[in-house]
Amino acid sequence: MITATYTGILTLAAGSFLLAAVLIVWRRGLRATISLLAWQGVALATIPIANGVHQRSWMPIAVGIVVLALRGVLLPLLLARAVRGEDQGAREPTPLVNTTAALLVTAALTMIAYAATRPLIEHSPTPGTRAAPAAFAALLIAVFVMVSRRRAMSQAIGFLMLDNGIAATAFLITAGVPLIVELGASLDILFAMIVLGVLTDRMRQSFGDTDLNQLRELRD
């Protein structure tokens, strides 16, 4: 693959990755969010596959396929199944920050991400690294989603976004960490999501719904 194309693909992937994150902030419906998450997973998977093709190495491609399966398909499906149990129209109630403000915050976070990742680009100005700020921005946006969403499931989605962001950053700047680490990490994410899913179920059973504002019993 010629470098220009490679760069283009990486940029496109990173861009759509970030766009998905921004859209998740915008949209409040859980189902739509999950679709966006799947889209983000696909964009994420594109990065190692592109890397592999570019470097002619099968390993990143394999990782990419695993990522695609896990983050593009499996986890969104799991989430969708969990959401099906939600009875209240599967819609995030009024978030803690209104949409306009949220988008402004998103913009600010993106700028911070660009500022923060300057040393990375200076250290190794590869095409991947140049795209890394987008991934990093998505990471920060994910954090924002976790902070501002009130539904348990939304927070789990935020967490998955956060992981996606980290993974994207990793793929973009390093072409992938050692395999065992990557596998371990993915497995951990999977389990974490399962745990969160189970907990959401339990929460729904004991609280009636999954509004996180109810989790204020334990305090000093």
Binding site: L96, I112, A116, L140, V143, F144, M146, V147, S148, R150, Q155, L212, N213, L215, R216, E217, L218, R219, D220
Partner: peptide, 21 residues
Amino acid sequence: HTGSIHLYLLFGTIGLLVVIV
């Protein structure tokens, strides 16, 4: 320490932003 997980996550976020800066 109100028990609000959003506040707690906000603490972490502030920490993260400080670290980034």
